[in-house]
Design a binder for these strands. Sequence first.
DNA 1: TTGAATTACTAAAACGTTTTAGTTTAGTTC
DNA 2: GAACTAAACTAAAACGTTTTAGTAATTCAA
Lengths: 343, 343
Amino acid sequence: MPVKKKRTTITDIATHFGISITAVSFILNNKAKAKGISDALSKKVLKFAGEVNYRPNALAKSFRTGKTNIIGLLIEDISNPFFATVARLIEERAYERGYRIIYCSTNNDTKKTKELIRMFHDQYVDGYIIAPPEGIETSIRQLSSDGKPVVVFDRYNSRFQTDQVIINNYESVLQAMQHLIDNGYRHIGFVTIESKQSQMTERYRAYQDIIAANGMKEYVLQLPFAASDHVSITAGIKHFCEEHPVLDALFFCNNYLGVYGLEAIKSLDSRSVSQFGIISFDDHDLFRLYSPTITVIDQPIEEMTGRILDLLFRRIQEGDSQSPSVETLKTQLVVRESSGPKK
Amino acid sequence: MPVKKKRTTITDIATHFGISITAVSFILNNKAKAKGISDALSKKVLKFAGEVNYRPNALAKSFRTGKTNIIGLLIEDISNPFFATVARLIEERAYERGYRIIYCSTNNDTKKTKELIRMFHDQYVDGYIIAPPEGIETSIRQLSSDGKPVVVFDRYNSRFQTDQVIINNYESVLQAMQHLIDNGYRHIGFVTIESKQSQMTERYRAYQDIIAANGMKEYVLQLPFAASDHVSITAGIKHFCEEHPVLDALFFCNNYLGVYGLEAIKSLDSRSVSQFGIISFDDHDLFRLYSPTITVIDQPIEEMTGRILDLLFRRIQEGDSQSPSVETLKTQLVVRESSGPKK
DNA sequence: TTGAATTACTAAAACGTTTTAGTTTAGTTC
DNA sequence: GAACTAAACTAAAACGTTTTAGTAATTCAA
């Protein structure tokens, strides 16, 4: 039977020295000088607090101040390597600054995300980092109009009144497509997910533009979002390839489409991966090591998480005096074997 | 300038009806009947609370009760696919039961982990899920002797006085090795990480035993934990292969060793992946799709996370009346191309 | 018609901290 | 020695909730 040993409180310390808890509080919060507490007393109290291993009751503190030192992280799926890496870097950097992370996966589900935002709000998180699904504008505007620090990333929406960190989707795809075209591919399939969100529409717009500019034909597979499981995506892509035997290249709009795309191609009877020009958005161990190695558009995740936290902490510290800023980062086209000159 | 609109409190509701906050509290906490509050009043209050969208102040509640509905998750690295999947499933199941997750990556660093445990303790998390590094016994014993619900997973340690969920490492490796031997491999390299922890020592012990039982020779590469970066692991494995040209098979002790191992083999001048029998611990997209596809020992992550949370919630609800239980789950050997009969 | 039991409520303390608005003492100035 | 200032501290409220220990009014049994 565990004995609940009471933790030392500020009151214990105060009574030990026969002084007021006010004094102890000031001293422990580095306000001794400012509040005119003598050095002698400060020293004594600090020494004692160290000896008894005093740890402030974070709940009492949070309750009193309304600050929790917790940041809410809302992403599509923590088990997706892109978001897992984001989560890792955010956690590390936040930890250094004394913040912890509560995360939740949204599955890109609007209703669930709204619930999660409310839940985070109820928990008094100090800031929000969100990769938003569709239809979440009002929830997010509500947050920022309540004065909560929010940084949105991965998907841009001009109607959010918050800081945003995104990448140059349009230019990235343009560059990737140009690279394929330069290498002789003329029938490039574009595999994407049904979505009205910027990251996907921008990628698609780039594809359309460059296909049109080169007088080529569009081959688009837009997978319904609902069917985002392994089996139906793979089947969908396989069917797409079989339907269009003329295809000589494929562009995949994100990492899991790329992964499942390779799986689908592998299952084709008639053709192999090396017979396609292939580029995928997002890097992945698989793309680096596959044979052929797969060309990717690599997002600058370190820079991205750095910027996200800079913006968030600026807002946490300075309040919302600043007007929202949108930062667009550049991706890198990592050319590998899969996009070499068409044979 | 955002107007801080005060949230409705229990007191607001009480004064609105001219009743006591006690009554309101009882009603909102479903204790109306038990505490003899009339149905009529209950109904009125609940209706009103709904109308004004009353949300209890979680901080006040936590402060008062000492319960936060937050679970601390300590894992080696959230960006590792195995742990990312664990995190995903734990989050989902915990959320269903009204709990949130705070996570931190330990990097398997003892000092950092001790800090993190203290930090979680300071934050009054309601329970701990920990994949512990070495040297953390006393911290964990301290937690459980304080009556905190703790479930340890992935690494077994008989000195923890907590619930533990692990897998049958010894038998898994035995089975995998037997499979290689049955398929004609006689010079099997064992690539592992320097570690005194059960999951690694058990895997190694199985290797030793079966090698000895078959009168074969051991080839072991034990990488120093400190050098766990991409470059030095890959270089280490490459060197190991070059040093022992007789090797006809390789066993990798976890997913990233497997991934980097494939990369290392790929960089060899003399030999290719298909010339080795290969098995890796942990599944991964890469292993499923590589050519050849890679045989793996797959951990039952769904079952594992399910058991972890069952044990944790049992302890959260029932206190530590139960003596600690250790659950050992079975892995599955997923046979793929890489371990086919030796050519 | 008294006393007990039941029903329907409430007053107030408590949780540990921060912070406002002081008070007390000693020293300084004229 | 009165008035002011500065230094060093403190009393008490406040945050929003839960919970203990009640009270008051009504009903019921004898």
